[in-house]
Design a protein around this nucleic acid. Structure first.
Lengths: 247, 247
DNA sequence: GAACTCAACTTGTATATACAAGTGATCTGA
DNA sequence: TCAGATCACTTGTATATACAAGTTGAGTTC
């Protein structure tokens, strides 16, 4: 009788559904590292017993987490923590911190610089601004469980986001702030394969011989460019991906 | 008494779950244009009655279709057909020959190999097939005005496309044939930056030091993989891009 | 007419129950 | 020893039932 109790605690939050609390609790287990990839988690019946929920409710939680790619279920065998599939959504407008947290990992970012630059010809073209006008620029490194995973080089239109430099980027990421404050209505991106510059290789902690993905993105409000950003990923650590129905 | 019967027909296919048949039937309604975007669809109770299924089963179908973005539900009001998201390019299922011709260039392709391979563990996983089953494989080089621009390494599910090897690939590309013969309803892709293998570098006529984009794509019909393909582009000659409205 | 109540719908969640079917270990018999 | 049956587990699906909660429109009252 090895029926050690399952040590899961629900938030008990009135107002959030039970199946959601269960999902959150399981995500937390994975995030904390207590449930590593490959581990078999308690069965539906065990969870139902120890959480005082019906098996159908447990089933819904596990089924949804499986659809989200966090769990893997084998008929007749059990439920296991999935290998994290390391890809980012190409299509959705999500901030990298959300994406990392979704996978049960820890996100952190380091602000490398904040400044106002005067646009040259190329940047003016890209931002659709007159030449030699001021543009805000920030550079950050994003890490997943302390491993650098993305460099963000972002330019922001000061006319549309005048308060941008006052944001505390230790609290929120630039992308989060921009999505929240300006609701962009159009999005453009281009993907390229590049060799990293020494600056990038250094901050991503990769050899200069390792290819990187560069996601060059612009978001628009009306016809005007809100922000233009280069997101550089080391290919060994992250892919970009998407799944959807074709038109 | 405006209780016109709901004219939905299930496949009745023993072996596929009822909730899945219902999802397929609803997708078909939308695909045929009978249920346009914005239309309110029958309520759970109406569907349950006319399909002889329990409301919980209907609920599961509708909930999953909502998660997939095909439906929109409003508490207390009803269920509606969602607006189709418009995305482009990276997102659309277009064959490279169309894309090249679109730009007013000349497309040509060279067939490097056609064969039947026996799936190993990795390929089986990717194709969602049992291990050590036969899979069709073709390799081509696509050129734009005689400059090689893409290598296509494609695997095809023989169960779903048994006639694949009989197609004349000097006439049509594999992608064209697959889009036309099987109308896939789901698409997944992952973008990576890679260094080319010597095989790839040779056929793309690039130095082995030039990074490439690898677009790894799978298309689905129902829940089954129709085809899995790697498309490798030399970064100096081609970018991938898209522009659309965020959700 | 305006405000309020209420009934009739909708979706959202939670439960108990049932059976099918896959997996792996153990037992059984030749 | 080996092959097969059986059992104890697992997930997968389907159902009936129940109540909560949001929305709308019809009816009532002032």
């Amino acid at each position: 009788m090895n029926s050690r109790l399952v040590t899961i605690k629900l938030s008990g939050d009135k107002g959030t559904p039970v199946y959601q609390q269960i999902k959150d609790a399981i995500r937390a287990k994975m995030q904390s590292g207590e449930w590593q990839a490959g581990k078999m988690i308690p069965s539906e019946n065990q969870l139902a017993d120890s959480l005082n929920a019906s098996r159908m409710t447990i089933n819904r939680s596990l089924r949804e987490l499986t659809a989200e790619g966090l769990l893997k279920r084998v008929h007749g065998l059990g439920t296991f923590v999935a290998e994290p599939p390391r890809h980012a959504h190409l299509v959705k407008l999500v901030s990298i911190s959300d994406e990392i947290k979704q996978q049960g990992k820890q996100h952190s970012s380091q602000l490398l610089s904040v400044e106002t630059v005067i646009s040259d010809a190329e940047l003016s073209e890209r931002m659709q601004l007159a030449e030699k006008t001021p543009v805000y620029k920030v550079v950050l490194v994003h890490s997943q469980d302390s491993v650098p995973i993305q460099i963000e080089i972002r330019y922001v239109n000061p006319e549309l986001v005048p308060d941008f430099l006052e944001v505390d980027f230790t609290e929120t990421t630039p992308a989060e702030h921009l999505i929240k404050s300006i609701r962009p209505d159009e999005l453009e991106h281009i993907v390229q394969a590049i060799m990293p510059s020494t600056f990038i290789a250094e901050h991503l902690d990769i050899p200069a011989t390792e290819p990187c993905l560069k996601l060059r993105r612009r978001t628009f409000k009306g016809q005007r460019v809100v922000t233009a950003v280069d997101l550089v990923y080391p290919s060994s650590r992250y892919d970009l991906g998407a799944r959807y129905a074709p038109s």
